[in-house]
Design a protein around this nucleic acid. Sequence first.
DNA 1: ATTGACATTAATGTTACGTAATAGTTTATA
DNA 2: TATAAACTATTACGTAACATTAATGTCAAT
Lengths: 252, 252
Amino acid sequence: MHYTINELAKLAGISTRTLRYYDEIGLLSPARMSSNKYRIYGQEDVDRLQQILFYRELGVSLKEIKKILSSEYFDRLAALEDHLSALLVKRKQLDLLIANVEKTIKAAKGEIVMSDQEKFEGFIKKLVEDNEQQYGKEARAKYGDDAVDRSNAKLMGMSKEQYAELEKLTVELNETLKAAFEQGDPASELAQKACELHKKWLCYFWDDYSKEAHISLAQLYVEDPRFTAYYDKIAVGCAAFLRDAVLIYCNK
Amino acid sequence: MHYTINELAKLAGISTRTLRYYDEIGLLSPARMSSNKYRIYGQEDVDRLQQILFYRELGVSLKEIKKILSSEYFDRLAALEDHLSALLVKRKQLDLLIANVEKTIKAAKGEIVMSDQEKFEGFIKKLVEDNEQQYGKEARAKYGDDAVDRSNAKLMGMSKEQYAELEKLTVELNETLKAAFEQGDPASELAQKACELHKKWLCYFWDDYSKEAHISLAQLYVEDPRFTAYYDKIAVGCAAFLRDAVLIYCNK
DNA sequence: ATTGACATTAATGTTACGTAATAGTTTATA
DNA sequence: TATAAACTATTACGTAACATTAATGTCAAT
């Protein structure tokens, strides 16, 4: 039985390029060349190719396969065992990598201040909902889909510098808030400064700030467990403290 | 603060070649070139390099890193999550590969009967060669390529159940052989039963059994180190014992 | 002035092919 | 029988992330 390059390629489910390549590197040379220099493969070649593909599927490199096929049975077994331990090392490294990436993502998401888009989207949405409850349809027109879109656009259009500033501001806000909370008085100068910073922070997301919205958001912080959890990480009860402070700040 | 290429390389623990390469692909271009065309890196470059190496350690490709660093925070997080899922896919594939290699090694060692075409092909081929030596061209016609093809076809056409049966039979054969060997007499009832099983086992591969072929195969077991090793794993000297038993069995 | 340490660009090698481009051969059809 | 379709061949570039080598240029120190 003999095959042309195309026939063998189809038989084995590989490309002719692959066969030519295997010829080139001396891994599988055809039994003979026909007068017109076409490659003619024989039964032995088919068998050898089968072996090659077998090892290839196990992830053995072509170089290794070449060595394996030219060696005796025991060497083949040893080669496979070598290969296995190499694969195990690879898996260990991969596991480590995965653990690191997971850790990084986790850190980026929550252990550090969150700025995930989803959160902001939910944030704004909640705000809108809240406004709706508080101010009815009029407010909806004011803070509706359009507002969401603009907010998002604002976020997406932020430059690196702006983002860095926002980050800095966030840290400052949280620190100030924490310090104020420890003093215990929502009307204190420090607490009012925190409100000021909070307003500034909000303006990164809103393009039309209003006292009413600020108050309703502060209220939301207490009611919505997602936000409560966030602010409680700064200090337990901090969300409520902020709300009280904002109430004073806005009615001043 | 500014650094020459060597200084930065040492600082970061990478090669200068890498830095030039990063410059070449536009991943990290130095702040400026000195009058003598040397690369001069600034603080920003150091920071950027730090980030590059961070992502690189997580297995992100340089192309991806380039994209990530030019994008905003949200996209970076999304990129990391994409990367993570890619890594998980990779691990699944690797696990599969490892399982396959392990199975193959196990099979090669004889704990499982090999369904790998390779082994049987070598097996039959050796048999053919042996027959040739023993019986000349006449035998070749009998066990030639055609026989190989039929054997393979038989193997390939085996159902899962048949395969399981074969496995069971193999275990039984090996155990019987081992017990007979320990008794020490190739003519014993147990040894002859082992021959019977061996015949049955052979008939899984041959579609025309003959006493002559059985004998020559048994002889092959002793002469060919591949087979000797296999049977010696059951007990040292077992291949020779089996041959003696088969001789008696076939001449009975 | 020379040496040694550093810098530059450019080319090549690595894996396992994919993808043209170009040219010749065989087979099928009009 | 002419032509087209299908097949063959070689050559060579592209991929990822650099390492290595070569040839050459520059700088500080002796």
